[in-house]
Amino acid sequence: MLGLEYFTFADKWSPLFLAFMLVLTAVYFLIVGPLSSRFEGSAPVSAGRKVLFVSGMAAYYLAQGGPIELLGHMMFSFHMISMALSYLVAVPLIILGIPVWLWRAFDRVNPFRKLGFLARPIVSAVVFNGLFSFYHIPVVHDFVMLNFTVHRIYFLILFITSMLMWWAILNPIPEKDKSSGLMKMAYIFLNMVLLTPACALIIFSSHPMYATFSDPAVWAKAMGYCVSDTSTLLTSFSGPQDFGYLDPLIDQRVGGIIMKFFQEIIFASMLAYVFFHWYKRENKEDDPLPGDIPPGNLNQA
């Protein structure tokens, strides 16, 4: 399917990265399970929260180590699916999957406290979307794809800045969450706007922009990031077009549309989530619940 049959199990599933993600997931279950009593204020973690964490880890693994990662080196549309899963799907699921008491424990020993300004809403939005857009400038993208150490470092930085961006929206520590619902909704709109120019550039380009998806020699070198042996690639295949189901330019445009679609759907869902919780909190604060005793009648109770 899509040419995956021509690659080995290791090429498609990245066993070392899979093992790493499984170890991290096992550590999570140890901490929220048998070791939870060692953390101040710990409480049982719901099955739903655990499902969120595992789903986030699975999405990140598929995007950065599974078949989607391999396909993302052959088709730009899958590259954008990988980026969307990594930074717009996996990250918020992981944040929501970690219990509040564990976030509080981390906050008490946070070694990056002095860099807290990076978590400010506008700063984190500009930094993440700026780095994401900068990465998709053709010369930058091709350089990163061909230099594997730079690739790993850049993607790690994108993951961290994505965490900061989502933290401003989802902040799971109530006492640290200073933003109102209206501020969060404005912040979400800002994120939607900031990514639009990069997507528009990709969608409306009149020619294929990335050599890694159009030049066979450059593509073969870039494939070294996820394929153990690239020496026979150009003898077996003429280039990435052998795997693509679309013309390179159409594939590029589809990739830009996919990213914008993912962004719109996810941030629209976040708008609904933030509005619901803001509305719920405002009504809880303004309207006494049935059976509440007014402050003036406390002495009579």
Rank of each mutant, 00 (worst) to 15 (best):
K176V: 11
M165V: 03
F159I: 11
K178S: 15
W166G: 01
A168T: 14
V150A: 10
N147V: 04
T149A: 13
N171A: 13
L182A: 13
V150G: 02
P174L: 11
K184D: 13
L158K: 02
L146F: 01
K184G: 08
I160V: 10
G181F: 03
I153T: 09
N147H: 07
E175D: 05
Y187G: 05
S180Q: 10
D177V: 02
I173P: 02
L156A: 11
V150S: 10
T149P: 01
L158E: 08
S162C: 01
G181L: 15
S179G: 15
F148M: 11
D177W: 07
S179W: 14
T149F: 15
L170F: 07
Y154A: 03
P172A: 07
I153Y: 09
I157S: 06
Y187F: 14
D142C: 00
L170V: 05
W167N: 15
G181T: 05
D142Q: 04
F143K: 00
S179P: 09
F155H: 15
I169Q: 06
V150W: 08
M163Q: 14
L164T: 02
N171D: 12
K184W: 10
W166L: 02
A186Q: 13
F148D: 08
F143A: 09
M165D: 06
S180K: 07
A186R: 07
S162K: 04
Y154G: 03
P174N: 07
N171S: 11
L164M: 11
I153C: 00
M183G: 06
P174G: 06
T161Y: 12
T161F: 07
